[in-house]
Design a protein around this nucleic acid. Structure first.
Lengths: 183, 183
DNA sequence: GGTTTCATGTAACTAGTTACATGATTTA
DNA sequence: TAAATCATGTAACTAGTTACATGAAACC
């Protein structure tokens, strides 16, 4: 359900095309939800059928026509209702955890390299998030939408940092085992 | 793909029934992967069709027959291959993040209560994980499977702690906003 | 001349969720 | 006597992934 609502949140901030929304899933919305452009187009179609969004077709020269969507009153209402609805805890699904748990079946060196690669990716993610955070120089004074955006970003930063720390701990632990078994 | 492999990892440690494996997804395996019993039975059927697991039917009196599954050589091979395969970064999907980002559409008080409820759930999760960690009193001396299990558990602990800290920060930030707007 | 950007989609597939179904035994 | 445990499953649905498709413009 959250994909529909993530799209509605975006359209609640400003109207946009499917293309633009899909891009946001690689940027801002991407700190807490991800989706491909296929999902976005499909979901916009459904939201339109449900009457939660409206669009107008804009002709462009040299570029394909685009559909600029905006949130309808019914959409705004549905979103308001959803936002105050209790959310269940997100079920954990970490493939790297499964692999680590099955590490005895694989090669320890390869697994350590894999963990290091992940740590690098998380470091890059963290650096990107910290870059975004520069847009909020005085967090204590934020209110409304800007505050909410900042707090969500803080979640991204905390998550990335925690992932990096865990990778460090695992690389360290497996490294000790590796050195012990490879003289 | 990881569900198949999570089940194979479990069967690699000891043979078991679908029922027992499904329970593990509520306990140990649950620190990093979740699945319902329906998924487990369906996937076991597929793993059997692929030749990665074998089972023998055990009759019981007073209880339904059960199928005790074990990992086949082909399964062990497939698992070994998968473990050293690169894993992409898990796409983030946090419904609470979407709701927070759309907080302007909802009631701030309700959202704060929701965040506090989540913090409680994460605290309980953390307490449970820390209970499990008591089984590993001397982490520095662990090797092999026990070490891997411990490191995965550490990931669970770090994740829960980081979620609690984030909830604290959000409750704090939204609380300030709430008090400012409700005199 | 090749890649990236803009802009839309269809189709087939895999994974996960929710609801329903059965039935004996043990525990509170 | 009601609920939980043991043990298996089917069916229908929702969500997410992967592959394919089109086509002009701008940039290097």
């Amino acid at each position: 359900m959250a994909l529909e609502h993530a799209i509605m949140v975006s359209l609640g901030e400003r109207p946009g095309t499917g293309y633009e929304i899909a891009q946001q899933f690689d940027r801002s919305i991407g700190h807490f939800w991800s989706a491909t452009h296929q999902q976005v187009y499909r979901t916009l179609k459904k939201l339109h059928a449900d009457g939660f969004v409206a669009f107008e077709t804009v002709e462009q020269d040299g570029r394909p026509d685009k559909k600029v969507y905006q949130l309808s009153d019914a959409g705004r209402e549905a979103l308001a209702k959803w936002v105050i609805t209790p959310t269940p805890l997100t079920p954990l699904r970490d493939e790297l955890g499964v692999k680590l748990r099955g590490a005895e079946h694989g090669d320890l060196g390869t697994i350590i390299t894999e963990l290091e690669a992940h740590r690098d990716l998380y470091r890059r993610q963290l650096a990107m998030y910290e870059g975004f955070a520069l847009d909020y120089p005085d967090p204590e004074s934020l209110t409304g939408r800007r505050l909410h955006q900042y707090l969500v970003l803080r979640g991204g930063i905390r998550g990335a940092q925690s992932a990096i720390d865990w990778c460090d701990e695992v690389v360290d632990g497996l490294g000790r085992e590796y050195r012990a078994t490879h003289i």
